[in-house]
């Protein structure tokens, strides 16, 4: 039996690449917006493309509560790109909007005269010694906002684009990546496969 992975349909994200990559690592992705199913699911992916304010709009109420319950209980959950920022307390992208508040910290905008914004392309991911799922390698990034500091209680990976920042977090089977594993070639598929086993 292929493992079923429920992919949160936030209405703002482009899901085709996530779905295709999960199929390539022999999982069975199913799009889902039902809070009860997401709460009970073996595995959940929270994808994210677009603005934080709009995405949080769809994560108010039961859907957000279901994700909070999963992450707090350490149930297998993978947050991608904006998905990572949705776990934080908030982002300078949408100043008045509280995010899910599961991870301490706030996303800031890349700044610096010589810096390309958004960061688009392949950059190096360097996991710290506590990481079990993340391995060193190149990942594909597409974002303008980032988490500066490593939050307490999480193993992290770091990446440098003008500043060195936290590009991924893991705690047991909960994994959050600022980069797109689904677009990061064989390295990304390897990470997805390890998460499916976690």
């Amino acid at each position: 039996m292929k493992p079923i992975v429920r992919v949160v349909r936030t209405g703002t994200a482009n899901l085709a690449s996530v779905v295709a990559s999960l199929r390539r690592v022999d999982a069975e992705p199913v799009l889902c917006a039902d809070p009860a199913l997401l709460r009970a699911a073996d595995r959940v992916v929270l994808p994210g493309v677009g603005a934080l304010g709009a995405a949080m709009g769809t994560l108010q109420g039961d859907l957000g509560d279901a994700l909070r319950a999963r992450v707090e209980a350490g149930r297998p959950t993978l947050a991608i790109c904006l998905g990572l920022q949705l776990l934080l307390e908030g982002s300078d992208e949408s100043p008045g909007v509280p995010a899910l508040g599961l991870v301490p910290g706030r996303a800031r905008r890349f700044d610096g005269d010589a810096l390309r914004v958004p960061q688009l392309g392949w950059n190096r991911v360097e996991p710290d010694a506590g990481c079990r799922l993340l391995e060193p390698g190149y990942a594909y990034f597409a974002h303008s906002f980032y988490l500066p500091d490593a939050p307490e209680g999480w193993a992290v990976a770091r990446t440098t684009h003008g500043v060195t920042y936290t590009s991924a977090l893991e705690r047991g089977p909960v994994l959050a990546c600022q980069f797109h594993p689904e677009l990061s070639g064989a390295w990304g598929l390897g990470l997805l496969a390890r998460w499916l086993e976690a």
Partner: peptide, 11 residues
Amino acid sequence: VRHIRAQLSIP
């Protein structure tokens, strides 16, 4: 595009 995406793991 659908056919390409089924096989492709890069942007």
